[in-house]
Design a protein around this nucleic acid. Structure first.
Lengths: 354, 354
DNA sequence: CTTAGCACTCCGTTTCTTTGAGTGCTAAGC
DNA sequence: GCTTAGCACTCAAAGAAACGGAGTGCTAAG
C-alpha cells in the first residue's frame, strides 16, 4: 500500500497530538485541527489503513490510536517539522555554556545538568578519549621538607601531577638525574609497555631516588589508563517522574536504575561511530529495560583527542523535534567552545523566531 | 504519664515491626512476638496510652498504629538495639573502600555509590574544606614549543597545574624570573587578597613573561576559590522507588528533585558542627519537601584540612539501626584510609556475628 | 492488673452498573 | 469513485453498592 500525502499528514497529526497530550488520538480530534478538510469518517478510514500498515496502534477497540515504533521512526525521519529555537532558547543555552568549564570531569557533570534543564528530561553527558595515551614528558619539582611534585605531560597535552612525600631526603641533583632517566626511558610508551624489566632498568639508573620510581610508575600507569577511559554523568533523574507514562513506579524505576548503572555505558560505544544526532525509538534500544523509552544523542568535539556526547532519555512520546533541535544547538555550541577555548565563539541562532 | 518499661518495649516492637512491614501494626501482631507475655487487650491499652502520649498514631479508627515522629525520635535515641554488622558486611564494605580513591571529587562520587549500595537507599557524599586556602609555592616548567606548565601548590598540599600555550616565546631565564616574582609576591595570600594593584606590581616586575601573569592569576584565584568549596555527589536515586511509601510518584518526585537540587546543599552546613552520626526524623528536616523523609548523616575526616560527610535519605520508616551502623563503619573506614593513606588500615569489625 | 468477649467502625476489595468516547461498517450523496 | 452521515457495537474507566475482616474501645469477669 502506498503512503499518500494525506496519510502522511494524518500520521504526523496523530504523532504531534499524542506527543502533546499523551492520550490516544481519535478521529474527531484530527478533524478539529486547522486545515483538515475531511470528515471524521474519512480520517477513520485513513487511520484504519495506517494501523494495518503498522504505523499506528490501538490500545483497545474503542480507543483512539497511538503511534507505533515504526510510526515514530517515520515521523522522526521524514515527517516532523523542524523545531525552530527561539532567540530566548538560544540565548539561555548560550549563556549557560559560556560559564567557564574548567576540568573535563566537572564539565561533564555541568553539561549533563544543563542539558537536562534545557530538555526537561534526564540527560547523559559523556567525554571520552580515543586512542591510547603516552607520556610526553616528566618533570620533578623539589618542594621543600622532603616532598617532590611529579608533573606528567601526556601525549594529549593533558597535564597531571602528584605530590610524593619522601621516605628519604633527596637533593636537586638527584631529582634532575631521575627526571632525565624517566624522560629517556619512559616517554612515548603506552601503559601496557611499562614492563617489569623496564621498571628495574629505570630503578638501576635512578641512583639515590630509586625509591621514588615505583610510586611514579604506578601513578603514571594509572593516569594513562584513566586518560583513555570514559567520563560520564547523568542528571535530572527526577524529571522522568513528571511524565504521565512514568506514573507507574515500576517502569520509572527500571529506566532510572538502568541509566544509573551500566546499561548506558555501552551506549557511548554504539554512538561513537555515528555522526550527527541519533534517535533511538523504544524497541530500537538494545537494553531490554528501555523498550518503552527513547534515547536521543548527539556527538560533539572537545579537542585534545577527546570526544563528547550528550543525550536524553524519555518516553517514546517525546517531543523529538524540540529535543533534537536543542541537543544539536548544545553540541554545536560546545564544539565551538572547546575547539576555540580562548575566545568562546558560540554559533549563531539558527534564526530568530517571531 | 510515665514511660514504663513495658510501654517502651511495646513502642520498640511497634517501630521494629513497622520498619519491617510498612503496614500499621495491630495489637495482635505484637502479642505474637516472642517474649510478649500479655494478651492483645493489655497491649491495646498500652498502645492507646502511647497514642495519647504522642508516640504512636492511628491512620484511622480501625487500623493498627504507626510510629509518630516523636516515636521514631525516642526509638532512635533510646530504644533501638544496636545493629551488629556481620563479618560479611564489614568485609564487603572494607574491600569496596580499599580500592584506590585517587582524586577527591572522584572519591566523592564513588563513596556515594558505595554507600547507596550498602544501604539500598539514595546516598549523599560530601567533601569540603574548612578555612580558606592560600598558595604555598608556584613553579613554572618550560615544556617545549611555546608552552609553559604552571604548577601551584596550595596550603593544603594539594597540587594543581595548568598548561599555558604562549602567545610569545619565552626562555628559561624568563620563567625563572617570573617564578621568583610570583613566589615572592603572591604566596600566603587568599584569593581575596589578589587585588588589581598586586596584579600590576607583579606584571611590572615580570619582564618578558608579563603576558602570562593575568592567566596565572585568574587560574590561581579560581583554584583557591574552588578549593574552599564543596564537592558533593548523590547516587542511587532509583532505590527510593523500590520502597512502598514512594509508590506515590508525586512524593518520590518531591524527594528526588530536592536531593538533586539545592535543598541538600545546606545540609552540609547543618551537619558540619555536629559530631558522630546524626538522625533527622521526618519533620525535623528543615526542607518542607522532606517532611516525610528521614536523613541519616555521619562525618569523617579526610585529612589535608578537608572534611567528609556521608548520608542517606529514606522514609521515616527506615531501618535506623542498620543504616546507622553501616554509615558509621563506612565513616570510620574512610577516616582511617585517608589519614593513613600509605597503609590503609581498616577498623576491625565490631565483632563477628553468629 | 489482666484478659476474654463483644459491638462497632471503617478501609480495601469485589462485583455490578453506567457512561461515553471511539470504532467499523453500510448506505446515501456529490 | 471518493466522501460523509448515521448507527450499532465495543470496551475501558468511573461510579455505586455490598461485603469481609482487621482492629479498636469498652465492659465485666477472673
Amino acid at each position: 500500500m502506498e503512503l499518500t500525502e494525506r496519510k502522511k499528514k494524518v500520521l504526523r497529526s496523530v504523532v504531534d497530538l499524542y506527543i502533546r497530550t499523551a492520550e490516544p488520538v481519535g478521529s474527531k480530534a484530527i478533524t478539529e485541527l486547522p486545515d483538515m478538510k475531511y470528515s471524521s469518517a474519512t480520517i477513520r478510514n485513513e487511520m484504519a489503513e495506517l494501523t494495518t500498515m503498522g504505523y499506528l496502534e490501538q490500545p483497545h477497540t474503542s480507543a483512539g490510536r497511538i503511534p507505533s515504533a515504526a510510526g515514530y521512526r517515520l515521523y522522526v525521519d521524514e515527517l516532523m517539522s523542524d523545531y525552530r529555537l527561539s532567540i530566548d532558547e538560544t540565548r539561555s543555552i548560550s549563556t549557560a555554556i559560556e560559564e567557564k568549564m574548567q576540568r573535563v570531569d566537572k564539565m561533564v557533570e555541568k553539561v549533563a545538568k544543563l542539558v537536562s534543564q534545557a530538555t526537561d528530561l534526564p540527560a547523559i553527558s559523556v567525554a571520552s578519549r580515543h586512542g591510547s595515551a603516552t607520556v610526553k614528558r616528566f618533570d620533578l619539582i623539589l618542594a621543600g621538607q622532603g616532598s617532590v611534585i611529579l608533573v606528567v605531560m601526556l601525549s594529549s597535552d593533558e597535564v597531571v601531577n602528584k605530590l610524593i612525600k619522601l621516605p628519604v631526603s633527596v637533593t636537586e641533583t638527584d631529582t634532575k638525574l631521575l627526571g632525565a632517566v624517566l624522560n629517556a626511558a619512559m616517554t612515548g610508551l603506552t601503559a601496557d609497555e611499562f614492563t617489569a624489566e623496564l621498571l628495574e632498568k629505570v630503578m638501576a639508573a635512578a641512583g639515590v631516588a630509586a625509591a621514588l620510581v615505583p610510586v611514579i610508575v604506578d601513578f603514571t600507569t594509572d593516569t594513562l589508563r584513566r586518560s583513555g577511559s570514559t567520563n560520564m554523568a547523568v542528571a535530572g533523574h527526577s524529571r522522568l517522574l513528571g511524565l504521565p507514562e512514568y506514573r507507574d513506579v515500576d517502569k520509572a524505576q527500571k529506566v532510572l536504575s538502568s541509566i544509573d548503572e551500566d546499561a548506558l555505558s555501552n551506549l557511548p560505544a554504539v554512538m561513537m561511530n555515528e555522526h550527527g544526532t541519533k534517535v533511538l525509538v523504544g524497541p530500537e534500544n538494545v537494553a531490554q529495560e528501555l523498550k518503552d523509552t527513547s534515547v536521543v544523542m548527539t556527538k560533539f568535539d572537545i579537542g585534545d583527542g577527546m570526544q563528547g556526547m550528550i543525550g536524553v532519555v524519555g518516553p517514546t512520546r517525546m517531543d523529538y523535534a524540540k529535543v533534537t533541535a536543542r541537543l544539536s544547538y548544545f553540541a554545536e555550541s560546545l564544539s565551538k567552545l572547546f575547539t576555540k577555548p580562548e575566545t568562546p565563539q558560540l554559533p549563531e541562532a539558527p534564526h530568530e523566531d517571531q
